[in-house]
Design a binder for these strands. Structure first.
Lengths: 331, 331
DNA sequence: TTGTATGCGTTATCAT
DNA sequence: ATGATAACGCATACAA
């Protein structure tokens, strides 16, 4: 059996309450400096480690938060990696641990965590019912700030990409939507944003969706190959994600088109892939990392009752310009 | 306050032990089908959720495992992503949750987790002392199987890459080591393995290490640019990781060399980057995902006392051939 | 088959 | 400043 405060109390001939107080992190407790030192030294000697569960059971605080994503698929890949990194860093900075969780029962089980950061919408029925009123901050793209959530606007991101292409003189443009069967169609706001930018410029873009593969990189390649067969005069491609964009660039090169001289390509999410490609990929940067940080801060504020819920916050998207895009040379 | 088994017992006018038994997952307990149903229905109605902490405190099982990595840096990036995915999938399959942890106190704190999968060596003093005898399975590269660990051999991986290059006729070869200040020099076994393959073929490879940047992709680009300036007759480059390799490919293209016709390039770890590059990157596949799965299985065997420690297991590395490598055209 | 009593390791309350 | 005791929510040995 592990060593407990009983063992320390026994050894020193004092009560467990005294031991508990001596070991407590709250310096303000009434206890003599003398016994505190004795207890601490003895605890160290005996190799005492507090039992986090027992402590949490009585204090009602686990000092752990959950990081929930609807599907496993969301949790792999370079985009979510930015979020995971940010969340864990900020959480540990604030003294909290992170429990990864795709399963709702982790969240609905009582006691294990004090709250959750969810890559989901506040209107996710299942999730909200599993939460049962426990603190939660949502992180998701969306058209406007919602309560208890940190968001960014994919409409805006795609719109900016479109505006940029237009400003660079592009008129023969295609939007690569790819395989949207995953998730609840995150492509829509992007599609709308891009179309809006095009409409404002009097351009009607082509749109390629679907694709036979589970692999978006392959889909990007195949869709682009088909696209160029029908529309060899395309000068710009906007892709729903970086994988599609890289696939498109590969197809273009194989077709003898150079990027960005003949065709500009823009990706989405600004993942690690974007800066490692050749040419490096212009991509819409979504603030998923910053969103994670803010979500954790707010969540822990909620948990520690320092804040009382918040109206939600909207983060800007930005267009990270790299080498895959530029002025069209075809007027 | 949340609803507990007391509340259910009160409502039904029965004892908490009966409620506990009715809700227990062990079907074998002696209890009437009648009351079991009544209890379950009432629990459902009242929205009862078991308190995982209280349960763990008395059973001594938390049904959670920790995933430890020495540094945050190790935890981001596409290589570790494979491990994370595998570990979480297998763990949840076996009914366990995963606690991410870079901090040792998560592990040394009692009770929170039943064991840990560590991306570390069994001889990691700090870690082992923090574990205090609790179940742990280590995942790491290394020269030979060690107790309680799942490993793969980076010497072997690099050796295979070298052998392959030689077999394709390459004699003017460079090994890109890049910036090795991270971690405890994981480059060494790779360097040794590659040198071994070269020595056996009577080839003496060039070696490029260092690099001014934190970004291995940039280092790959810069080192390769320098390399080609001094040794324009290089026909093959083996890089310590995929980032370096992609940087190298970019540099080569900018220097007017084509891959693989003029220069073959091989990366390491077979990350998602490898298949998304153009040309796709031949890369040494390290079985970090498989290692994670096996580690979880063994760990949970240890926890549930179904297995009594194991001597360690060695997984093979393989060379994933893609389009960035081939026969040299320079004899 | 069900109920009673006890314990898991800790903190909180109320004494002293 | 310290100690006795209850309580957190649950599971289980034992009694009925």
């Amino acid at each position: 059996m592990r060593v407990t405060i009983y063992d320390i109390a026994d050894r020193l001939g004092i009560s467990t309450s005294t031991v508990s107080r001596a070991l407590s992190r709250k310096e303000n407790s009434l206890i003599s400096e003398n016994t505190r030192e004795r207890v601490r030294r003895t605890a160290e000697e005996m190799g005492y480690r507090p039992n986090a569960l027992a402590r949490a059971l009585i204090t009602g605080r686990t000092l752990a938060i959950g990081l929930y994503t609807r599907s496993m698929e969301e949790r792999v890949g370079p985009h979510f990696a930015r979020m995971l990194e940010a969340v864990e860093l900020k959480a540990s900075e604030l003294g909290y641990q992170v429990l990864m969780s795709g399963a709702l029962d982790t969240i609905s089980a009582e006691g294990r965590i004090d709250g959750v950061v969810a890559l989901a919408r506040p209107d996710d029925e299942e999730l909200v019912s599993a939460l049962r009123g426990r603190p939660c901050v949502f992180v998701m793209h969306g058209p406007e700030a919602e309560r208890e959530s940190v968001m960014w606007n994919d409409f805006e991101g795609a719109y900016k990409a479109g505006q940029y292409l237009v400003s660079m003189g592009h008129r023969k443009v295609c939007m690569l939507i790819g395989n949207t069967t995953h998730a609840s169609n995150p492509a829509f706001p992007k599609a709308k944003g891009f179309r809006q930018a095009m409409t404002e410029a009097g351009v009607s873009p082509q749109e390629c969706l679907g694709g036979p593969s589970e692999d978006e990189f392959e889909n990007g390649y195949l869709l682009t190959t088909q696209l160029l067969a029908h529309s060899p005069d395309i000068t710009a491609i906007f892709a729903r994600n970086d994988f599609l964009a890289l696939g498109a660039m590969k197809a273009l090169r194989h077709l003898g088109k150079s990027v960005p001289e003949d065709v500009s390509v823009i990706g989405y999410n600004d993942t690690v892939l974007a800066k490692c490609s050749d040419p490096s990929l212009t991509s819409v940067h979504t603030p998923i990392g910053e969103a994670g940080v803010i979500a954790v801060e707010h969540l822990i504020g909620l948990i520690e009752r320092r804040s009382e819920g918040f109206p939600g916050i909207m983060l800007p998207t930005t267009l990270t310009l790299r080498d895959s895009s530029g002025l069209t040379h075809r007027g």
